[in-house]
Design a protein around this nucleic acid. Sequence first.
DNA 1: CTGTGACCTGATACCGGTATCACGCGGAGG
DNA 2: CCTCCGCGTGATACCGGTATCAGGTCACAG
Lengths: 365, 365
Amino acid sequence: MPSDRDETPAQPTISEVAAEAGVGRATAARTLGGYGYVSAELRERVLAAADRLGYRANALARSVSTGVSHTLGVILADIGNPFFAGVMRGISDTSRARGFDTIVLSTYEDLEEEVAAVNVLIDKRVDGVIIASTAVGRGEVAHIQAALDRGIPVVLVDRAVASLDLDAVVIDNRDAARGAVETLIEAGHRRIGFVWGPPAAQVPATRRELLAEASRNLWTDGERLRGYLDALDDARIPFDPELVMVGRKTEDRVTREVARMLALPDRTTALFCTETEAVTGALRALRAAGLAYPRDVALIGFDDSAWAAVMDPPLTMIEQPVHRLGAKAAEVLLDTIGGAEPARTMHTLRSRLVVRSSVAPPPGS
Amino acid sequence: MPSDRDETPAQPTISEVAAEAGVGRATAARTLGGYGYVSAELRERVLAAADRLGYRANALARSVSTGVSHTLGVILADIGNPFFAGVMRGISDTSRARGFDTIVLSTYEDLEEEVAAVNVLIDKRVDGVIIASTAVGRGEVAHIQAALDRGIPVVLVDRAVASLDLDAVVIDNRDAARGAVETLIEAGHRRIGFVWGPPAAQVPATRRELLAEASRNLWTDGERLRGYLDALDDARIPFDPELVMVGRKTEDRVTREVARMLALPDRTTALFCTETEAVTGALRALRAAGLAYPRDVALIGFDDSAWAAVMDPPLTMIEQPVHRLGAKAAEVLLDTIGGAEPARTMHTLRSRLVVRSSVAPPPGS
DNA sequence: CTGTGACCTGATACCGGTATCACGCGGAGG
DNA sequence: CCTCCGCGTGATACCGGTATCAGGTCACAG
């Protein structure tokens, strides 16, 4: 086995480069590390030797020594979800441009997974963390606080967390929801179904309880509910718990719930969906009920996509600036890592209602 | 500033734990590292001290020492693309389950970016690499070979690379394409448009040149072309370059190209699209031309999604096992890292034609 | 009472970098 | 001619872990 006593090791170190160049380890280190004095002649020799051996600095060793890893940790609900994938792309693009790489972890909305993810990132000594946290209450943020206490800057993305005074990059969820519902109201609708998502067992009967439930759940869900209620209030339309769906917005559940709303004596004539799965689920329910949009029921949903535009008729949707969301979060984090004093504010990005053809007046009018 | 001379450092080290516990550094290290002898009593003391200080081992330092990082590098064309996001999810799920984390990089189909990405991963000393490479020719794989030479195992995903004898986890692209086109032919179509994607300037006029062009491009594109040709051959339908589109499958370009095929004297009556953007682009062209599917033109595309199912009529699509693709790639890589001898074969996963309602006989029949 | 070995422990030499510092050498100035 | 200084270099002590090893303690057998 002649390949076993290879002369050039697979992963040459600074010492090997130094030996190859016939200089001291320190000289090779200074040349390769780009610090301190090295004469032009020796520099050439070292560089040539490094090139010959294919030397590449061990970033881990460097990080242990310097204390910085040039790595960002990213914790999302689900990297397979197109929304988060888009956010991730924004994070990835801007951090790479600034010389940082990223470790991504998905939590699937499980707080324990999130805690574990934070620990992984602490262990790997990332320079900062971007997180779309599933945490809500004061008692659920210990892991994030722990990272902060260790001096690791954290930026929230997509979801603010009330009990955490941190930079957060989000969209104007409340405004977006209100705008969408207003559009529906302006078209003449009063029975507007809200395809919502907190994991409550059943829809609270009163407004007060509803709001309370909202604050016990994901910030985005709470904001979108408030926006829905805002629009209803402005138009003096009373809130009806029968028109609100609760629980995970999986396509199946949405389909069943929307079917229920559609079967009500005083049935829903418009639907506002707060997620992509909610839209596709609603569409399924419509078809099953033999109803067509916008003729029988109007529809507006969150998260525009190429598909929404080619539907027949094309769907009116809320477009979120996904890339910007990630990019901005990375910018804020990178600035903090760079030494800037964190603003600890909410950076609110504008969403956009893309008006197409899924809204029309209710049947009777 | 009393917080400055903090007694408990933000990121305590083994030495600090040892001091706190009143034992030697080595004893603390053995306890925390879980190797060698430690008496029950001292172990307790060390553990208690570690707990008090909130000790978490520095994974980077450990990696420098042990030579393994428990980190996988993943290089994809675009993490923002739902297909790759799904693959990434598969990779992420199975590697996390085995104690590995992942660093993801997007290349946007740029070879230089890919080379840079490999270097980043080499520098960060990942234990293995999964890559959906944009490399094709023998002259484009030096960076991958370099990683291999350094002893870093590499597994290809989605795209095989002819000049690289490595494990590759892919789907049966050729079969899938042939099956789809056969379905179209069986419905009676003979003028089948192929919305393809190699970045050639124009469609080669002859079969021979076309095949040559195919081998100069992404493996997936080549395979799908071969499958298209296979089906045509079996049915003795001559290949017509006018029915093939070339160049990046962006929605705009697809729309224009499909419009062209639709305007041909002997126009296209069926379309086979090799990517999601190709499908949405085709749909736009159909609408612009005032044509409906499946009545005026039949349609089959790659990459099923929830949207395709709720279209009206619902689309017949090829479903790729995205999660499995990533999961399998991670499994193969992890096994290799674990010491298994790499099989260096193509692991071909089955895709599935999800038959819905976008295929009907051509208008005339 | 000594020899032997099992059981523990701390010292110490790694890993591959960063960064400082002592010192040799040569030239300029007194 | 000697001193001093600056340039350039290698030695060396870090960083925070892993892993080995020498040696001390103690029980028990001979």
